[in-house]
Design a protein around this nucleic acid. Structure first.
Lengths: 196, 196
DNA sequence: TGAGTGCGATAACACTGTTATAGTTCGGAC
DNA sequence: GTCCGAACTATAACAGTGTTATCGCACTCA
């Protein structure tokens, strides 16, 4: 028994923790529960991640890595720069709605004032990179007025994040179809100030 | 001793809980701590609010009531409809930055998957009303293209909320002044699509 | 004055994250 | 083959959490 490499155990802990978080929320994610589900003891978390915060930080990193990957895939092969921008927006919402609790961990403080360490924030930056690149492509191709790409990207991100966040908090009225439509409208509105 | 009416005790519990939440975050808000600070026992929370969720719901309500009041005051006496809209946006951010943890409670799920009950959401709606009114005034006065005021207000709210939320999560780069500027820029950008 | 009733204080229960201790297992050296 | 050393893990204990049952007090009303 115990034919599991230690490297795999760390990954399995993060995976299983993500599963519990997605399925039952932050309140259900206890170390005893996680240890039982992974077939080990709570000490595994402490030797691997230091404490629960370390585990959450690893989940935070994994979440942004997956988000960044999903965003990259979304624009892969899309020629038209404005279409690529729209695809990014749609992919962002899709990822958030597919795993709301993980989204909470990444963009809120669902558990005990968890503060990501600086190098974890670097990973968050990398998920933001495809958006900046897409905006820059729009400017280079003349689809957008030339300006500060970072600033524009930051604004576009705030719009998508705001819509998704209000949606998840139950603050947007209307059924699912109406909220879908409101989101695509928001994508259009957000880019209008920067079109030539 | 004990010259405190029961009505006052409920209010004092909510007040003191808000103080602890603002000062030290959600992790520090325990019932024993709250009871000690208020000079009573944990049972007071259970007889008044049922359980901790009930206390959080009361705080949620109080937060939105204060937010709505702050928004109403912000537009009070402002004649120009577009200026009123801008004042609302600034007041919103001011309120959020003044009490980030309460903002988390209202727009996220900082503690144990707390779900506000429907009538508490009604209070949240009332805080949203001044914004819809301001948009409608813009449309009536010709400062904005006539359209669905609720939909436009929802979009404007998403922009402000998105900017504030990313700011609080530490996802916006730049110093305080730069983030202030980015916010006022965002207020301008957000209204551009609806100007005549 | 006395009965009744609602409310708060106390203490216990099951749970949480964390840590100290002890045991187990695995690798390599003689 | 045997033994040592060093990780790692399981177990159990500690302080703290939300919650609840029990008990006693105080206040109200007849």
């Amino acid at each position: 028994m115990a034919a599991v490499k230690t490297e795999d155990l760390a990954a399995r802990l993060v995976d299983e923790a993500g599963r519990i978080l997605s399925a039952e929320g932050a309140a259900a994610l206890s170390l005893r529960r996680l240890a039982a589900a992974t077939g080990t003891s709570t000490m595994a978390v402490y030797t691997r991640f230091g404490d629960k915060q370390g585990l959450l930080a690893a989940m935070y990193r994994a979440g942004f890595e997956r988000l960044g990957a999903a965003m990259s895939v979304a624009v892969d092969g899309v020629e038209d720069p404005l279409s690529a921008l729209a695809e990014l927006g749609l992919a962002y919402r899709r990822a958030a709605l597919a795993n709301p609790h993980l989204y909470d961990l990444m963009f809120g403080r669902p558990v005990a004032a968890f503060e990501p360490d600086p190098d974890a924030k670097q990973v968050a930056e990398s998920a933001y990179r495809p958006l900046v690149d897409a905006v820059r492509r729009c400017m280079d191709s003349g689809a957008m007025v030339v300006g500060d790409a970072e600033r524009v990207a930051s604004y576009l991100w705030a719009v998508t994040h705001g819509m998704v966040s209000l949606d998840l908090a139950g603050q947007l009225r209307g059924d699912a179809a109406a909220r879908d439509a409101a989101y695509t409208d928001a994508l259009v509105f957000s880019s209008l100030p920067f079109l030539p």
